[in-house]
Design a protein around this nucleic acid. Structure first.
Length: 568
RNA sequence: GGGUCAGUAGCUCAGUUGGAUAGAGCACAGGCCUUCUAAGCCUGGGGUCCGGGGUUCGAAUCCCUGCUGGCUCACCA
């Protein structure tokens, strides 16, 4: 498609002494559509040129040679130079583009590898609503990078190692017979976990026993390994239920334990740098010089490994295996210091600078209960499966009220309920905390997932009734010059730009909000205009526009991990 | 205490390298279904953009400072 911004920058560059790239950056989109589609503020040139901004704008306007087939007109308002896109041109561009099978695909990321580390729940602990964010934010970034042509690798870096397993093994040893682990694995294991944590608090020797268990596990002790494997298998089976509901997929399930045999190399490399020093019996890297006053512990005083060491081994492995250009880590902001430390120590691994630069922690806010923070140990968590089931039930109820004769109610309720939950999580900025309120998350009105789905269903319904789809070439573009249609056209035009913005900020909410804008624009259009009408030219044009909106909504939603029903 | 993130309408939040009159949704009040799905559309009231300085032609946005809150600060992950 024509890049209007570039076009304008090129034209302005012919008139004044500034680089095209710089000009392109200066160009902005006016908030109010009556001020045009692109604006060039001349204020910053005023001092340099010793003229008033209005005068500069006026002079550029007089000298600039615009192609009226691309840009309709240029106007000076205040110190702004406002450009109006030619409606015929943008309408033609958008409609013919969207008709293509491959619409929305891009080549920007071609040849680039991106590793995304997301979801990563802890084995033997409940998969609760706190894990939703990593799972859906990571999942949507995965989809969006892929859409832009990147080679994307999704990794579920399972929390399947560490002292917590030493604790579970200890608890199982002590009271395993009292719990029916086969029947309700995670619930029962959680009870053991809570109980052993309590015991550790009361008695340090038990805590040390747990640490020792983990050491044994790392050393391959057959009893410990056997129990650990059992816990892992049972947990994964439960997690899979949630992933199936959410439609989440991974390319790799290599968790922390996978790096068990890859850590000695890390320690060896670090030893050679001379920076690995002993302190209080542990092996650490001091990061004071780097402005981090907490050292990174590489090996505990009892000789067992840490989370940091495993992450370092993972960096080494991922650099070699995936040759990544970018490696994203999706976790809550509780871990910012950890990743700061690990990325700093990674510089000592002797890997190409590209791999260091590519490391990026993407922190997000926490899900809090109205009463405060959730904690597995305290036992006050809302399980994700519970939330999703509740969402589906509520959706089903609403369908029963509004559209009781619908076929496949169950299937649709699933799409709507889960869509609502996913959209809710992806519609706010990552860094913000989220207070969990059932009525807010499962609200189906206003700026929500169901609103997007409902709008999509309306487009489907119209198209079904019409029964045909005209060709973009045959459409009389001038039938779409009204304000409502043009709003939609302009939004569709910016789709790829939106995806790029998402990857620049690692912020899927930009896409969520965009989809709301599209749905709103269509709803207004739909309310204002009859699509099926006597005038066949108008009908064809509007039908095609309706089809375009449906296509964008469906594609956009699928990138967020949300499925569209055809009816609801 | 150090580091770090945040503070915008009654509530939940948008606000693009600084740009034109600070915007949505929820809630509230009203209007719109004999018509392509009312999970919708339209209209309305609502603001010390946490306070105070500074930079700038221009600040919700950048800098300094204070206040409030979250997270974090060596053998959890």
């Amino acid at each position: 498609m024509i890049n209007f911004k570039q076009e304008i920058a090129n034209k302005i560059a012919e008139v004044i002494q500034l680089e095209k790239e710089e000009l392109e950056n200066y160009l902005e989109a006016p908030k109010d559509a009556k001020n045009g589609d692109y604006a060039f503020p001349c204020f910053r040139l005023a001092k340099e040129l010793r003229k008033s901004p209005q005068q500069i704008a006026q002079e550029i306007k007089e000298n600039i040679k615009i192609d009226t087939n691309v840009l309709e007109k240029v106007e000076v308002i205040g110190g702004y130079l406002n450009f109006y896109v030619n409606k015929e041109c943008i309408t033609k561009e958008v409609l013919e583009e969207i008709e293509k099978e491959e619409y929305g695909k891009s080549e920007i990321g071609k040849g680039k590898n991106i590793v995304i580390d997301y979801s990563s729940p802890n084995i033997a602990k409940p998969f609760h609503i706190g894990h939703l964010r990593s799972t859906v934010i990571g999942g949507s970034l995965y989809n969006i990078y892929k859409q832009l042509g990147y080679n994307t690798i999704g990794i579920n870096h399972l929390g399947d190692y560490g002292t917590q397993f030493g604790k579970l093994i200890e608890g199982y040893k002590l009271w395993g017979k009292e719990y029916d682990i086969e029947k309700e694995p995670i619930n029962e294991l959680t009870k053991i976990y809570i109980r052993i944590n309590q015991a550790c608090k009361e008695d340090e020797t038990i805590l040390n026993q747990c640490r020792d268990n983990f050491k044994k596990l790392e050393e391959g002790d057959s009893y410990c390994v056997e129990i650990w494997e059992k816990f892992k298998t049972l947990s994964l089976k439960e997690f899979q239920k949630v992933y199936d509901l959410l439609g989440t997929k991974f390319d790799s399930w290599n968790g922390e334990a996978f790096y068990s045999d890859k850590m000695p190399e890390v320690i060896e490399i670090l030893e050679k740098t001379g920076k690995l020093i002993e302190s209080q019996g542990a092996k650490i890297i001091d990061l004071e010089e780097q402005g981090i006053n907490t050292p990174c512990i590489i090996e505990k005083s009892n000789g067992s490994s840490t989370y940091a060491t495993r992450d370092l081994a993972a960096i080494l492995y991922r650099a070699r295996t995936y040759n990544y250009d970018k490696a994203l880590y999706l976790t809550s902001y509780e871990q910012v210091l950890h990743f700061k430390q690990v990325f700093e120590v990674a510089k000592l691994l002797g890997i190409d600078d590209k791999y260091i630069k590519g490391l990026q922690h993407i922190p997000f806010g926490m899900v809090l209960l109205p009463t405060g923070k959730m904690s597995t140990r305290e036992g006050n968590v809302v399980k994700l499966e519970e939330l999703l089931t509740e969402a589906i039930e509520r959706a089903e109820k609403i369908i029963e009220e509004k559209n009781p004769n619908l076929e496949d109610k169950k299937e649709i309720a699933k799409k709507v309920g889960i869509g609502a939950v996913i959209f809710n999580d992806l519609s706010n900025s990552r860094v913000k905390d989220e207070i969990f309120e059932w009525d807010q998350i499962l609200n189906f009105q206003g700026e929500t997932g169901p609103y997007i789905q409902y709008t999509y269903v309306r487009t489907k319904s119209v198209l079904e009734k019409v029964g045909y789809l005209p060709k973009a070439k045959e459409i009389k573009k001038e039938k779409l010059f009204d304000e409502y249609s043009q709003n939609i056209i302009k939004l569709i035009y910016s789709f790829e730009d939106i995806l790029i913005q998402v990857t620049q900020k690692e912020e899927p909410s930009i896409l969520s909000r965009y989809l709301i804008d599209v749905a709103k624009a269509f709803s207004s259009f739909y309310n204002e205009n009859k699509i099926i009408t006597e005038d066949i030219d108008i009908q064809n044009a509007r039908v095609f526009l309706t089809y375009s909106v449906g296509k964008i909504l469906k594609l956009g939603a699928s990138l967020l991990g949300i499925e569209m029903p055809n009816k609801m």
